[in-house]
Amino acid sequence: MNDKTSDIENAVSVHNVYKNYGDVEALRDLSLDFPRGQLTSLLGPSGCGKTTLLKIIAGLLRANSGEITVNGQPVAGPGPDRAFVFQDFALLPWANVIRNVAFGLELRGVDRSEREAIAEKYIGDVGLKGFEKSYPHELSGGMRQRVGLARALSVDSQVLLMDEPFSAVDEQTRRKFQEDLLKLVKNESKTFIFVTHSIEEAVYVSDQVAILLPRPSRVSEIIRPEGFRHKDANSIRRDPEYLDIVDRIWASLRTYVE
């Protein structure tokens, strides 16, 4: 990107967004800024509109009103500056892993040998080496999810929109992915928007956690877990501030669960 856009502090801003599905009011007057180079998680009860917000930012859905900008430009549709990781993976069942991972690049017109080389790298990164020629139905849920992750990473977009990207992987892999994600945020100047159901996960990986209220959804609270960011991966989970924030979020969310 050129200098002008990277001057803007927020990679993505959402202002006064309303979204209705017919009679269902999903988002009401929602505003939230996503600082550049940071990871923001959206945390909230099921059905509160997290996917809806993510898809609006992706340009896949139109808000009824409100302003959404990416790098200062209003969003008119999907663009190469954003990549989406789908909650239900959205893999092509008739294509093998390498074609699925390279599919984003294929659509962007990258030629075959080049895109397969890139895909190969990300397949390795998500731990699927050796499965390049497998088809989605031959993979477990967690492996499929990783294919979707590799596909989004391989297009090298500035903003990554991740809809519960670790929901189907086992706990060990999940922890490893969380650590990888932290490294990714640190090393690449990408902006991550991350939907999760797990409070621990949100606090562990996020620079900022936005807590959404149940439908019609607004941001009820923004928490910035900063004190332990510099610590190494293992000691974060035992950090008192980390545990504190987890408790605080749980306290404000539990009213909606009951």
Partner: peptide, 21 residues
């Protein structure tokens, strides 16, 4: 699966790509 259509759309598929791919 609507997701597949959205996925293709999100990666910038042209109408022709969406049709054939």
């Amino acid at each position: 699966n609507r997701s597949l259509v959205e996925m293709a759309h999100s990666f910038g598929a042209s109408p022709k790509d969406a049709f054939f791919k």
